[in-house]
Design a protein around this nucleic acid. Sequence first.
DNA 1: TAAGATGTTTTGAATAATAAAAAACCAAAA
DNA 2: TTTTGGTTTTTTATTATTCAAAACATCTTA
Lengths: 301, 301
Amino acid sequence: MARTNVRLVEAHNQLLTHCDGMELNVSLPSENALASELGVSRTVVRSALEHLARSGIITLDGRTKTVRRRSRPDDVMEKPPVLLGVEELEARFFDWVLRMDVPPGTVLNVAQMAKDFHVATHTLQEFLSSLSRYGIVVRRPKGGWQLEGFTVNFALELSEFRSVLELNAVQHVVRLPDDHPIWDKLDALETDHRSLLARIDADYHDFSQLDEAFHAAINAVVDNRFVREFQKIISLIFHYHFQWNKSDERLRNESAIHEHLAYIDALRSRDPDKALAAARSHLATSSQTLVNSLKAHDRAL
Amino acid sequence: MARTNVRLVEAHNQLLTHCDGMELNVSLPSENALASELGVSRTVVRSALEHLARSGIITLDGRTKTVRRRSRPDDVMEKPPVLLGVEELEARFFDWVLRMDVPPGTVLNVAQMAKDFHVATHTLQEFLSSLSRYGIVVRRPKGGWQLEGFTVNFALELSEFRSVLELNAVQHVVRLPDDHPIWDKLDALETDHRSLLARIDADYHDFSQLDEAFHAAINAVVDNRFVREFQKIISLIFHYHFQWNKSDERLRNESAIHEHLAYIDALRSRDPDKALAAARSHLATSSQTLVNSLKAHDRAL
DNA sequence: TAAGATGTTTTGAATAATAAAAAACCAAAA
DNA sequence: TTTTGGTTTTTTATTATTCAAAACATCTTA
């Protein structure tokens, strides 16, 4: 009923191999030295040393810590079952929700989900709380959570917001000097696009990553923490949506590549109107694709 | 070590007054009826009834719940000390941080803060987690939180982001039909501005609220959850910043009013270029004001 | 007598246990 | 058959506990 002792276990086991690498009947370095070597606090080092002493690997006498014997396999401490962090939780949660295994309106069972996802309940709580900012889940009046789901409205608002940010980014891009890294980046992206276009029949699936890289590159020229924050959720949603609607995928991706190439050309022209037009056009198709796959999914339910 | 029993206490006390309003020796309605009347679960109703029975207000016999006597003042149950919700926490936290009582880089003591702010620790955790999205606080590697603070960079990025959103809103506004409520709203706002201008020497302090209302009105035409989400943090920061830098406040506010009036006129003209120019101009001043007051504060430390 | 090392205490955050509430279920009576 | 009351089962919110870190004090040795 407390925090896990992974730190102690890891320190202990590292110390074990450390001892094995030393001569017998030689003293280990000071607690402080070990602490900074292992990257843990002295408290942990001391617990680990005591543990080692109890199992007879070392003897403690004042400040001398003498190595007495080699380690046996059963000397290594077992790690407690490891819980996932928020990043992994995020991925698994979206896998679960965006594949629409769960219908909107479902009340979420935090305790059960925490078990299923192998995370601590408070980690899940915090995660849900962060999702509630975007209305993907809502907190119920008397406690508990409800899945609001990934609605068409959500997709439309997300796309609109994305457009606002990206059109702003485009205006930045066309004003950037020739020696700005974005231009080399765009050159590289063009090569990648053309390469994918050549082998589109086989590898049309790879477009998802290319799309993400492309939009990320454009938005990266705006050095703003709020933009970055949103870029995260945007790329997340678009990333997952690519994974369902499989109909016409090859065709959609091929035409999207052509739009990207036109987009890149327009940016290179440095003509704001031309660039904005190309961007608007592509963002509109992209939004439409997202909404379509949502509607297709709704019908499938 | 559990959830509070406020629900029980409230149900109990409501039931008490309910009984007082009834004849003696008459039976109360069914548990289900009471539950839906009080808006709680039957479990709570039953606990409350048992409580009432123990104190002799009613007697329970099968499904008859007979009122036996009137309530005495000492029959009402005491509520447990109420903890603040997130909204109040938000206000108090920003009061604490934005007044710069706390220097950036401070490690935040969650347990202590929870006591000071009279909130549950997990409420505070969740709140800090939400702030961490904007880089106001950061999670430390081995747990714990650190105040990153409200830096000049933060202000610049916030202002930039605000501009992007508001310029987008402006483009929406100028395209709205004459019968859209925004025009009446702007008329009302103009009246308020002129009224404040007339008594500016005495009431220049009231501008803060007017400013918030004005920008809220413009941004409200964009019906987008992400915009709304950001509007919250933006108005929060701008609201608080109005409270410190007091130098030139009267003058600053007076000229801001004039900018607002010009801004309104430009919107009414329906000319996108004119409206955007007016918006840009005002947003630039606003941003400058924010940065200035920050710098003034930095020097004051 | 410094400098470094160890022993001790205090503080703090993460988690497990737990109490309160809600929901689900079942049985009996109207 | 419907409604009501009893019982059991989730499920959430909160606290108590535990591990870790840091601060402090003491001792040893060069």
